[in-house]
Write a protein that binds this DNA or RNA. Sequence first.
DNA 1: ATGAAAGCGCTAACAA
DNA 2: TTGTTAGCGCTTTCAT
Lengths: 357, 357
Amino acid sequence: MASTRRPGTAGRPPTGTSDGRPTSRDVARRADVSQATVSLVLGGKWQGRVSPRTAETVRAAAQALGYRPNLSARSLRLGRARTALLVVPALTGDYFARVHAGAARTAAEHDFGVVLYPSPEGTGPAVDPFGSARAALDGVIASSMAPDALAALHEGGLPLVMLDTDPEGDRAAATVNFDVADGMRQVAGHLLGLGHRRLAHLAAAVDSWTFGVRARTLAQAVARTPGAELLTEAGDLTIEDALSAATRALTAVPRPTAVICDDDVLAAGACKAARRLGLRVPEDVSVTGFDDLSLATALEPELTTVRLPAEEVGAAGMRALLDVLAGREAGTAVLPVQLVRRGSTAEPPTGVRPCHR
Amino acid sequence: MASTRRPGTAGRPPTGTSDGRPTSRDVARRADVSQATVSLVLGGKWQGRVSPRTAETVRAAAQALGYRPNLSARSLRLGRARTALLVVPALTGDYFARVHAGAARTAAEHDFGVVLYPSPEGTGPAVDPFGSARAALDGVIASSMAPDALAALHEGGLPLVMLDTDPEGDRAAATVNFDVADGMRQVAGHLLGLGHRRLAHLAAAVDSWTFGVRARTLAQAVARTPGAELLTEAGDLTIEDALSAATRALTAVPRPTAVICDDDVLAAGACKAARRLGLRVPEDVSVTGFDDLSLATALEPELTTVRLPAEEVGAAGMRALLDVLAGREAGTAVLPVQLVRRGSTAEPPTGVRPCHR
DNA sequence: ATGAAAGCGCTAACAA
DNA sequence: TTGTTAGCGCTTTCAT
């Protein structure tokens, strides 16, 4: 008989079964089986344990009720959520969209989910991503984050895979990187091969492993080439900043004949600066980008740039995380990149020897 | 004494307390209080119920153990997750990043979270967003999705707020829109006022409310202006497609003097097409965009376009959802938009009367 | 082939 | 002021 409201009953949350959202018990009642049977059937592990007839009944009832398993209950019970957090510094541009797509695809193949967390702080320390990313998580994939940002991520005590970040940091369980050094070497080789000798490096004013590598590699390549010189200007990854940095570079005396940019956005700024200075690209000055964003082909002329296999880095990152979660060894992967030659580069203008002023 | 393994004990998931992740019971043990006290203290509702001294002890223990509450358990118990799903058709460009930022900011103010779901299908029907978005959800905000996509979203049985979508669809609990009609009127007025009479509409080949409104409004504005004529070409929202559609428009005879684009990406394609045809922007042909993406200022000349308050639509959407969840009435909001005049528009070329071929 | 039961970690009512 | 207790919905073992 109904006892007079026992202690614990009082603590019942506002959303009982009257909430409208059917539970597996509702399905069980309707199919006239036990709740456990429902779980078995819908969990797909009923083979040889539940009769096909019953299984069908259960599925019909679930369908009729529009039943969806409660995710919280499932992951509470399982202790795992089959979910990874993908932390990215920004959502601008299509690069991170592609990383996400790759990660999500691979995750789905293993019945995993990915929740995306665009860090409000950019590449810097993420402010409590675990508080904001409202999901139960099994692991974290961090793309292009600064080293000190990773510390905060590591606090979570979750397996961490880093993409496009310093592989020397020993915080991560696994690392996936691009061969950015090779990419920059390809750029330098392309321009140097075209005959350029006065180069400007439009560097990203961002403390990030990838940009450090780009700067060092470029400096080395130039140093190895007799007669070649390198001028460096830095700017934030915004059009506005790129414009002013590029303007500084292009008004230097003697004027560089090529501007090597750390990023396609910077390259867009460089093209804008060139045009405003009355310089034609590529006749008067060559410009290169990096990343091969959709922006690269939105410009006219289209940018010569380095294509990064963004989807693949996302996929490889997810695979690495799955390996770690399964207790398997997850190595450090380095993905090849490729220079895409388009309209923004050409031979340097002739007759513009030292007599340029 | 340890009984001989009772029934239910067998079902214990692999991750017990030995998993390494501390639970509130671990904190309780360490602080030498009951688990309930821990919950009270860390839940911030201990005022006048737990002595400050005890509270401090608990916090210290939690800190020392690196305790983080288990989200699954919390939302299972609460029956609500304080989390919204934001469904967007794509992550390219910075528009949706801004919508997300606005929604996340407002959510955070109410201790809510936002999980972002980039629909792999673009504006079309989302394939089981609830399966992929691995989080317990209280509601859904859908931005710029096609009408039939919303049906699938509504299946979830969750409150649905729509952004930038047909307000006539009765599926949503609330709607937030831009005054796109006004935006298009501003564009048309600007160009017509400059003296343009032969206009081309570079339309987005996307079945979406917002583009329908843009087309209708533009047609009306042109029809109301004596001597004005409108040519329409449609293309997907890619540079490549925009380029060919714009090329068709710009090779029409007589050539239009202005190209009104449904979107900044289309406008970038139009600029590219113009340049390839040897036409100068804006001297020979004016081009307008829509959205004011960062792309708009990456180009030279910068695009005259319509700025949409993206962050605000995200914030308003989140507010509407919070209202619905609280049982309050959530009206339909319409946000004002503004034409931003930049370098891509000017008076039509003179002396290019009918004698242009 | 099916059911009963336990308990994942948490919150909140109630007892003490 | 603090502890006890029930139970959110689910998965899984064991008993039937």
